[in-house]
């Protein structure tokens, strides 16, 4: 009788335990360490090899707010990486709900690093059509985007003068919760031989392994864990470059600490992650014990 009950637990009990498993570690952090994975390191290296003040990295914000918990920390970490190394960035969005996020991220990080819009980075904004836009840019970026996000004609933007198509872009990073990296590979990669890396949600990361092996992708950042790894790499880089030290000197203690918290937000969530996983595994075990015990009794 009890086993029967266990087999058909009210789903809401599971819901409650999951909620608690996430809330408690956020209130009382444990501080478990993370390990670095190769595809993240590869992405980091690909960005790192772009020469400063030269041709820009193209960052495509192809996700919507729903994917922000995983992809937004990645976006910030990549932008920080570029700006601390003085790599220029060309930001755009192919997702209908992406432009607001792109604007939020670029202005915030640019301000933090004192970068100038139009010279150190350009924000092209959103253009509907996915694959169509990617192809169009292979011909001519100035034709695909007549103006930037702020309605300034592309021709008038200083940084855009030397940038015409993928020949002038050393690396594209597509951040997406859907299949948009596939479109980048299919159109920009196969057709124009563009080097591409992707940042994706943990769910789709497994789908992109075949493309890493065939070199259609040079790197891959997967989920919150990937973001926390990239975050860690950037934090270490900033320490090496002395960016961190400079920041500590120029900011008040409170401001500096606040920035530090925001610079390791992805890592903070990893504790809740672990506990929630264990709760789910515990449920699977309970479910199976009940199942086998019941089956035995029936015999």
């Amino acid at each position: 009788m009890n086993l029967e009950k266990l087999m058909r637990i009210d789903r809401r009990l599971i819901f409650l335990l999951i909620a608690l498993a996430v809330i408690f570690p956020l209130l009382f952090p444990i501080g478990l360490p993370t390990h670095l994975s190769k595809p993240v390191q590869d992405t980091f290296n690909a960005v790192d090899s772009i020469p400063p003040d030269g041709p820009p990295l193209m960052l495509s914000i192809d996700y919507d707010p729903a994917a922000m918990p995983e992809l937004y920390p990645m976006t910030l970490a990549i932008l920080r990486h570029c700006f601390s190394r003085n790599i220029r960035v060309l930001v755009l969005s192919l997702h209908r709900a992406g432009p607001g996020i792109g604007e939020m991220a670029t202005t915030r990080i640019a301000k933090e690093y004192g970068k100038k819009e139009g010279e150190d980075y350009v924000y092209l904004g959103f253009k509907p059509g996915f694959g169509a836009v990617i192809l169009r840019m292979g011909e001519d970026i100035h034709g695909a985007f007549l103006t930037d996000y702020y309605n300034r004609p592309i021709g008038e933007i200083p940084m855009m003068r030397e940038i015409h198509n993928y020949d002038d872009i050393p690396l594209v990073i597509c951040l997406s919760a859907a299949a948009i990296p596939e479109l980048w590979m299919m159109y920009a990669g196969s057709r124009y031989h563009q080097t591409i890396a992707a940042g994706v949600t943990a769910v789709s990361a497994a789908d992109y392994y075949p493309f890493l092996q065939t070199d259609q992708l040079v790197g891959l950042i997967g989920g919150l864990k990937g973001a926390s790894e990239y975050e860690k790499l950037v934090n270490e880089l900033e320490e090496r470059l002395g960016v961190d030290k400079k920041r500590k000197e120029s900011l008040s203690k409170e401001e500096y600490e606040k920035l530090q918290v925001s610079h390791s937000k992805a890592s903070a969530g990893m504790d809740s992650q672990s506990i929630a996983h264990l709760v789910i595994i515990a449920f699977i075990v309970i479910g199976n014990v009940a199942y086998f015990a019941q089956r035995r009794r029936k015999r």
């Binding site: 599971i14 999951i18 909620a19 929630a276 789910i280 449920f283 479910g287 199976n288 199942y291 086998f292």
Partner: peptide, 15 residues
């Protein structure tokens, strides 16, 4: 997050 837990509980039985 909730649904993946309940789906795992219901479906992951070694049948």
């Amino acid at each position: 997050a909730f649904y993946i837990a309940s789906a795992a509980y219901r479906a992951f039985r070694a049948r």
